[in-house]
Amino acid sequence: MSSSGPGCGDRRLRADAAGNRAKIVAAAQQVFGEEGVAAPLTRVAERAEVGIATLYRRFPDRDSLIAAAFDDVLERYRRNAEQALAEPDPWAAFASLVLGVGELAAENLGFAHLVQAAAPVRHRSGDTVPPSFETVLAVLDRAKDARVLRADFSVDDLPVLSFALAGIIETTRDDAPDAWRRHALLFLDGCRPPGATPLPPAVDPARLQRAMIRARRRRQTR
């Protein structure tokens, strides 16, 4: 029986489109994981073995491709935050949160860049905040209430830590892939209240986000 009847061509086109989308997402996960989210999209198209026009038909802009490529890793981040909140010891929960960010960044360089580019901004009227952000806030509040986390620690310090760890990971990942752990532990010790030196005010969240977006753009122009 012939397979060229009515609708077969449409089904084949849909299957080809779905196949191309899957190849592009897989390639983006690899390229962004190796080079960060500022990697040229032409590199993604080459890795997927499709033309750049095909990539743009499936994903009209970089952000839509990033969202698709990092769906799984962002789900892991959400689960890590929930597991930290479930930890009964407030300090262990906070440390788990920090080390979890480092581990994800070490596994996937693109995750660190993604966090930098999407640094959380404080609540304003009408803001939409992802559930993982609320979970992170709950972990921090509980640690502060238990007086195991310094009172002047800000949620906006977490993306700055990610920014710092990303630099260490980029520099050392080929020769000393676990080097970031030493600096994460130094950071954690600095978060404990005993003997803590009072901090200057936290950077304004909107300015922090602008700085990280500019850093992402500078990587895109390299």
Rank of each mutant, 00 (worst) to 15 (best):
M1D: 05
R12N: 09
R12F: 07
L13C: 04
R14P: 00
A15N: 09
D16L: 15
A18E: 15
N20F: 04
R21G: 10
A22S: 14
A22M: 01
A22F: 02
I24H: 07
V25F: 10
A28N: 08
F32D: 06
E34C: 05
V37E: 04
A38L: 04
A38K: 03
A38P: 01
A38Y: 00
P40Q: 09
T42H: 10
R47G: 02
V50M: 11
A53S: 15
A53V: 01
T54M: 06
L55E: 01
D61V: 02
D63W: 01
D63I: 05
S64A: 12
S64W: 02
D72K: 12
V73E: 13
Y77A: 13
R79V: 13
N80R: 12
A84F: 13
L85V: 00
A86R: 13
D89W: 12
P90K: 06
P90R: 05
F94W: 12
A95S: 14
L97G: 09
L97V: 11
V101N: 14
L104F: 08
G110E: 03
F111P: 01
A112S: 10
A112D: 03
L114F: 06
L114C: 00
V115W: 07
V115S: 11
A118K: 09
V121L: 14
T128G: 04
P130Y: 05
E134R: 05
T135L: 01
V139G: 02
L140Y: 00
D141S: 11
R142Q: 07
A143E: 04
A143T: 02
A143G: 08
R150E: 08
F153N: 00
D157H: 13
P159C: 09
L161K: 10
I168A: 04
I168C: 03
D175Q: 00
W180T: 05
W180C: 04
R181H: 09
L185N: 12
L185M: 12
L186V: 13
L186R: 05
P193N: 06
P193Y: 08
A196E: 03
A196K: 05
T197G: 01
T197V: 15
L199Y: 01
P201A: 15
R207I: 10
L208V: 09
I213P: 00
R219C: 10
